[in-house]
Amino acid sequence: MIEIKNLTKRYGDLLAVDSVSFTVGAGEVLGFLGPNGAGKSTTMKMIAGFLTPSNGSISVCGFDVEAQSLEAKRCIGYLPEGAPAYGEMTPAGFLRFIADIRGIAPGAREQRIRDVVMRLGLERVFEQPIETLSKGFKRRVGLAQAILHDPKVLVLDEPTDGLDPNQKHEVRTLIQGLAKDKIVIVSTHILEEVHAVCTRAIIIANGRIVADATPDELEARSRYHHAVTLRGDDLEGLKLALAGVAGVGEVAIDSEDKVVTAFPRKGQSIFAAVTRLIQDRKLAVSEVLLERGRLDEVFRTITQTGARS
């Protein structure tokens, strides 16, 4: 359990995090979203105990991060942004160092390291200096370090940043595969990731929480939620036909993608009516898509207007 109350961080005159409060319970995978400089990393650094809050309190596993910092740090696994490590060490030496400093018993140490190395596929590079490894492997070494002591709370600052699609997929699979009673906080600005791994998303902008909801709820806020997109040759004709369907509000043509999108009026469902229309009038349509809602659009709207949820 993580409880954050009125968390504030000032750098001189700059208010990086402005009175943020939220609670995360066991089993939640919290996606932390926001534009660059919104205060995501600063918040995570304070949770991990690296930075001291200017105001407010953080409690992790029942320990106050400032007053009982060692106890709090013991129950957190933290991957800092960019997965820093000691480049001259090999993953073998590095993970042994982490195990020793985290107080993993010498008898259990090698077994524990083997488990983590298997899980992250580090066998091949186990004895190579970390500085010679590719970005993907470096990130995996960072993740291995974070989960080595099987922490209750995992704080990952942009774990997939700069990875190729395969590596991203692996990291996501890893997060999904973590035991269900853990708390995971992941920051990212890749929105597809939120759907893939998170049970809850917090969007922060200018140091404040502007949205706190499940990914589905966020998508429901999108203009595209339950909109229907058609692909065809005669876009103008399709637009005209769609405008006549009951429940359809606006119809927009995207000439670049050669699609036309019909937006429903608030609370209306138009998919059935549109498919019926296509069949009845035998419209030349090559593709029909029911939109779930576009997170990137919601993200832009929320963070740019800064409207509170």
């Binding site: 690296f50 910092s69 740090k73 933290y78 800092p80 960019g82």
Partner: peptide
């Protein structure tokens, strides 16, 4: 290298 962030978030004072 940023490893200071790693070092000081380990359970050491």
């Amino acid at each position: 290298t940023g490893s200071i962030e790693l070092l000081l978030t380990l359970p050491v004072t």
